[in-house]
Computed example of a mutant assay.
Amino acid sequence: MDSDVSQNGETKATFQNKENTMNGLTTVPTSVTLSSEQFERLYLTPMTVRQSPLAKKVGNPTPLRFCHYNHPLSCCLMAWRGAGGNGIAFIGPIVFLGGLLLLITSILEFIIGNTFPCVVFGTIGGFWFAFAATMIPAFNAAAPYSSSGTDTAAGLASEAFMNTYAFLFITMAVLMLIFLICSTRINVVYTVIFLFLLLVFLLLSSAYWQLGQGNAASGDRCVKGAGASLFVASLLGFYLLIVQLFECVGFPPFLPVGDLSTFWTRNQDKGDREDVERPATVR
């Protein structure tokens, strides 16, 4: 029968370590521990709980979110170089670089236990899928609003469709407001991104209602304002992509993102000290 202890009193583990040393082998750690600041830089979520074991073993999916196509879409909304059509030319990028990439990122964030990025990326990815489906004739979403009942392009330009579709942007604006409040636990860059995304959806809803009422000039200004806001948000997204990729590969120097977690921790610690110092009242 095998024994865990050899005749000279050495355990099997000790014997194996000596054998590895003799062969010139060294033990290499297979996991890393991130600080709270590094965790929030990489995963865009506050470290309010213990770091997930999977986060130490699998890659970080968060940078995938910022490999987006918002930049060309924003140029289209601002009508640069004669661009137009409110993004119809970007059906392919909307589906694959927008919806599909965000859906994959959301699933991966769910697997490693990052709830906030999972909800954010999944919601925005679902929006891009819905936005693309509305403009694809096979889904027959806008065609019933046309006079013939079969023309998708005419349906997209009809007053009834615009007045109805604007409510989708209002709903997305409410979600961006919720995400904006939650992002104040993470960093300044992320918070500013949601602020501009909130402006994007508010301006788009205003644009659709203005165009639906026949106010073409006001509607076009709102569309261009939404494009400008999306342009700023996309630039900040590229900045976060650079920060995260530099952090992943250890490329110095580390760029600032305006960490807000220390602010919340400081206020929480202050509140805890006040609770301890406050004398108990007897009723």
Rank of each mutant, 00 (worst) to 15 (best):
F110K: 07
I111R: 06
I112P: 00
G113T: 07
N114W: 01
V120S: 01
F121N: 09
F121K: 01
F121C: 11
G122M: 03
G122Y: 05
T123Y: 00
G125P: 00
F127T: 07
F129E: 02
A132F: 01
A132N: 05
A133T: 07
A133G: 14
I136N: 11
P137F: 07
P137M: 08
N140V: 07
A143K: 08
A143E: 09
A143W: 05
P144F: 08
S146Q: 07
S147L: 10
T150E: 14
D151L: 10
A153F: 11
A154R: 02
L156K: 06
A157Y: 04
A157P: 00
S158R: 08
E159N: 12
A160N: 12
A160Y: 00
F161Q: 04
Y165C: 04
F167A: 14
F167R: 10
I170E: 12
T171D: 11
A173I: 02
L177Y: 14
L180G: 15
I181R: 07
T184A: 12
I186E: 02
V188D: 06
V188G: 03
V189W: 03
T191Y: 05
V192F: 10
V192P: 04
I193S: 01
F196W: 06
L197P: 02
L198W: 13
L198F: 15
L198E: 11
L198N: 10
V200T: 14
V200P: 04
F201C: 11
F201S: 05
L202T: 08
L204R: 06
S206N: 14
S206V: 11
A207P: 02
A207H: 00
A207G: 06
W209L: 13
L211G: 12
